[in-house]
Amino acid sequence: MTHDKRLWSRTVFWGVITALLYATLFIEAESVIRLARETPQHPWLVLVPIAIAFAISFTHGAFTGLFWEAMGLKAASKPKTPQTAGQE
């Protein structure tokens, strides 16, 4: 039970951080578009989308992994039927 609680709290933690990053991106959407348009003149601005992509991939990736785990979805483990030594 405590394990579940910890899993959920970690899920919520990364979820909130991800949501905040997304909210910031879209509140600042106009500035971001302006920066993209100005990139041909100021090449270093290309670092902006790269930094955003890294940050959001990291937090959102952590969140989704925990989310499906918390939802109880996991890959099928496919143990083959054990073979006895005699069958070897």
Binding site: A29, I33, A36, P43, V46, P49, A53
Partner: peptide, 10 residues
């Protein structure tokens, strides 16, 4: 593509 201003990060 970013240098061409074509990456729409949104």
């Amino acid at each position: 593509y970013g240098l061409e201003g074509a990456v729409d990060i949104r």
